[in-house]
Design a binder for these strands. Structure first.
Lengths: 203, 203
DNA sequence: GTCTATATCGTGATAGAC
DNA sequence: GTCTATCACGATATAGAC
């Protein structure tokens, strides 16, 4: 019951987000967005000048949320092992709720993804992140092995993002229905942290 | 110097493969394929009846190669640990040479990917694969912990496929140029097997 | 701000000569 | 088999009334 009567701009953005996420830039049609927003086609060009600008607006927002999510998790002031479990847990939930986000972000990535990254200073953020510091400090203390933080982060993200993007394949191979796939992702919340910690504590 | 003068059908297929891989189904234009194949636009419709049939032809071929690659690696009659190192090594090389294949395969996946999987009996192949047998047998012998093979395979694939798909992001965050990224993937050939083995031998 | 009507162009596909 | 010319359609975008 929040706001039955949204303004046109909001309705357009929400519809555009749905359509772009599902169909991609080329696959998305302005007509479909207009229809789903329950708005005239001309209205979209009134609020946003073009399809491309509409897309960029959606993309920047989605990308920002995504990166913000990762940054926040990485910088939480909890001990390393607890944090890894928490990152995986929260991030998995996010992906289950937003399964189309990864492919959406990666789709335009090779076109102009670099700009967004620079604008948000993603590199600096990660460079000075609590997570990276912890990996170095714990290694110096001899609690874990010394590793490239980028390898670790990429492993965590890949282990969670990939099955989401390849849900159909994973489900088919494992003979899983929709509930079965969710179970698979749930048990991944345990598998992935255990794997990461096993590696860090080995060698 | 193999075949300077290819027949039109082959030239079209090769051009279509390049364009579809780079642009996706919607983004690819028949005119561009024709130009890159150095062939008239009408020729494409002569050999393949429509854009969709051309795409399906390319997709089936690419998907088949990809799955074949995985199947072959998984079924090699080498001991488990050696095999894991080998799978990662070969598969990484394949991805470096074909970085666009994963997103291409996953792009149409939610549309009709299921059919291809059934046609190739991917599920049966994996079910009776040497790799799965080995995971079970080694666990029974007490050499490794008991795990869901699907979790392990998904981890390996995710750890390798994700950085390839997200090359721009990874490179940016790590401050890597193209050579640096290749190095990153090379060192991943060691990181990933060590991580998997550390997990299997732990617990 | 919101609508209808329309301009303009790019697309996949085909007809038909050679 | 290969070409040129063209159709038919759907796309984005805009003009202009209200």
């Amino acid at each position: 019951m929040a706001q039955e009567k949204q303004d046109a701009e909001t309705k357009i953005k929400e519809a555009a987000r749905r359509v772009f996420l599902a169909q991609g830039y080329e696959g998305a049609k302005m007509r479909q967005i207009a229809e789903e927003a329950d708005v005239n086609l001309a209205m979209i060009n009134y609020y946003f000048r073009s399809k491309e600008q509409l897309f960029n607006s959606i993309y920047a927002e989605t990308f920002g949320q995504f990166i913000g999510q990762v940054m926040q998790l990485i910088n939480e002031p909890t001990p390393l092992e607890v944090k890894i479990w928490k990152i995986v847990d929260r991030y998995t939930d996010f992906l289950i709720d937003n399964p189309l986000v990864p492919s959406f972000i990666l789709s335009k990535q090779r076109v102009n993804g670099g700009e967004f990254l620079k604008d948000m200073d993603v590199r600096g953020q990660i460079e000075k992140s609590v997570f990276k510091k912890q990996l170095v400090e714990e290694a110096e203390k001899g609690n874990i092995r010394l590793t490239d933080p980028l390898q670790v982060i990429t492993a965590i993200l890949g282990c969670l993002v990939f099955p989401i993007m390849a849900q159909q394949v994973v489900s088919y191979v494992g003979g899983l229905d929709e509930a079965g796939f969710r179970e698979f992702m749930e048990s991944r919340k345990q598998f992935v942290p255990e794997m990461i910690m096993a590696y860090l504590k080995s060698g």
